[in-house]
């Protein structure tokens, strides 16, 4: 059997909100390592990888590896029924085609359980090798979300360019053009407000803003976002999940025709 219990259930609600618009159906892999997922969007332009390590849960039991295929919109509907302060338990028995979500209020005076049908999903799992990135940007996640939102009112694509001067986000469209430059700023009162740019080589890549905006749905999960870029590689946009793991989004670049 498989069972996990998360006292800070709101984390799981936020995780679902960060992936449900990008991916319709996905296989969750349950193993002794943790609860994980890898899925591509329907056009195979972006990929999301989630890992929530078993040690991060208050209780985690996985007798044998299990894959649970779920419709993420339906899963999100069920998790929306959990209160923000609720403790969430996910349970699945071997050989059944359902998963149970149990929500307990902090004072234990309300306990709900929701049963959801699992699905058989034929999904391709990609091997993503570890890579040394030419440029790594760490910045406040809210700032990155703001930049993506602002630039999408100007154009459909963003050019991200990292140089010694900083990181430049540019967009161009029918009404005009926009450039936003963020410089390294490590001398802030709070570390979550810092912008840190590690650059081995200058790098410039172009990406569809529609996907970037979808990634920023993960902003409530983490104060900081990490953007890793190399020429001719997908960008990796990573949000940490409160000491338990991460959500990483991979986005293939656009190239000149």
């Amino acid at each position: 059997m498989f069972e996990l219990r998360l006292v800070q259930g709101s984390l799981l609600k936020k995780v679902l909100e960060s992936i449900k618009d990008l991916v319709n159906d996905a296989n969750f892999d349950c193993s002794s390592t943790g609860f994980s997922l890898q899925a591509m969007d329907s056009s195979h332009v972006a990929l999301v990888a989630l890992l929530l390590r078993s040690e991060g849960f208050e209780h985690y039991r996985c007798d044998r590896n299990l894959t649970m295929g779920m419709n993420l919109a339906n899963m999100a509907k069920m998790l929306k029924c959990a209160g923000n302060d609720d403790i969430i338990t996910i349970k699945a028995d071997d050989g059944t085609d359902t998963v149970t979500f149990m929500f307990e209020s902090p004072s234990q005076d309300k306990i709900s359980d929701f049963e959801m049908k699992l699905m058989d999903i034929d999904s391709e799992h990609l091997g993503i090798p570890e890579a040394e990135y030419e440029a790594i940007i760490r910045m406040p996640s809210a700032e990155f979300a703001r930049i993506c939102r602002d630039l999408s009112s100007i154009g459909d694509t963003v050019v991200i360019s990292v140089t010694k001067e900083g990181v430049r986000f540019s967009a161009r469209g029918d009404i005009g053009a926009a450039n936003i430059v963020c410089r390294q700023n490590a001398t802030v009162d709070k570390p979550e407000d810092a912008t840190i740019i590690e650059m081995q080589e200058p790098v410039t890549l172009t990406f569809a803003l529609r996907y970037m905006n979808s990634f920023t749905k993960a902003t409530p999960l983490a104060e900081q976002v990490t953007i890793s870029m190399s020429s001719d590689l997908p960008v990796v946009v990573e949000y940490k999940v409160a000491g338990m793991g991460y959500i990483r989004y991979y986005l293939a670049p656009k190239i000149e025709e």
Partner: peptide
């Protein structure tokens, strides 16, 4: 503008 590449062009099936 530009051609959108696919993620499967970069990473192999595992």
């Amino acid at each position: 503008p530009g051609v959108q590449l696919s993620i499967t062009e970069f990473y192999r099936s595992s």
